[in-house]
């Protein structure tokens, strides 16, 4: 069984929808249950990154994908670190970047170094606006200094910060519930195909004034 109990998001477009309620339905086969269960049971602490780097990464993740602390919280930093632990890339590497574990370690250290220089504190200790500003400058390639020579900030931001963190989030059931994605679908797929057509095992969208109806339908999704 998954670590956490269904935790329907009561706000948002799909009130009351929790994709994990479908876990025992015909939409999930054994293999799917296995991989998602394992994902939800990810080890929370760092394994490859140093404790400092991991703290920095957690702060970066909180900026890239803002989340509420709560049962539906997806530990994105843990997923990134776990990926580095297993040490394989996406099937290609930009010639200007080192291997992913090295690139992440250097980039997080560089972020902390820049934060120290400019604000006299590590990245995780900066306030929200300072963190945002640093990341924005990183995305635009406006950060410079010796710490960035091995990891071009702009390239690293697009190739790793955005991709790795966001992909980890989009792979998490909490994300599926939030965006109203049907989630796993095998052996049961879908029947109703046209515009505005929803199968009874899909998330119901709350149209203005219809929130309660959507919530009712979402609680019946199996």
């Amino acid at each position: 069984m998954p670590d956490r109990q269904p935790d329907p998001v009561e706000e948002g477009r799909f009130p009351g929808y929790d994709v994990l309620r479908k876990r025992s339905s015909m939409s999930w086969n054994d293999r799917t249950r296995e991989v998602v269960d394992r994902r939800l049971a990810v080890e929370r602490g760092p394994r490859t990154l140093s404790a400092d780097a991991f703290r920095c990464l957690e702060a970066v993740c909180a900026q890239i994908v803002p989340q509420n602390q709560g049962p539906s919280f997806a530990p994105l930093a843990a997923y990134v670190d776990e990926g580095l632990t297993l040490g394989l890339g996406p099937g290609y590497r930009n010639a200007e970047l080192p291997e992913a574990p090295e690139a992440w370690a250097k980039a997080l250290a560089a972020l902390d170094a820049t934060a120290q220089r400019e604000h006299d504190a590590v990245f995780a200790a900066l306030d929200d606006a300072q963190q945002k500003s640093l990341l924005q400058r990183m995305q635009k390639g406006e950060l410079s200094g010796p710490e960035w020579t091995d990891v071009p900030p702009k390239l690293f931001f697009s190739q790793h910060v955005l991709t790795d963190i966001v992909a980890a989030w989009a792979a998490h059931p909490s994300a599926w519930s939030r965006i109203g994605f049907g989630g796993p679908a095998s052996p049961r797929g879908y029947v109703r195909m046209g515009f505005g057509m929803r199968d009874s095992w899909e998330a119901a969208e709350a149209h203005p004034g219809q929130e309660a109806k959507a919530a009712r339908e979402n609680r019946r999704v199996r």
């Binding site: 099937g91 590497r93 010639a95 792979a171």
Partner: peptide, 30 residues
């Protein structure tokens, strides 16, 4: 038996061995 309904797990199907890309428009592989 082996295929999950899951994008991440199913990237097991892709060729993800080491490759290096460059040029003006480096290709995304995998």
């Amino acid at each position: 038996e082996d295929f999950a309904s899951d994008e991440t797990a199913q990237s097991q199907l892709f060729w993800t061995d080491k490759r290096i890309v460059d040029g003006d428009n480096p290709l995304k592989m995998g």
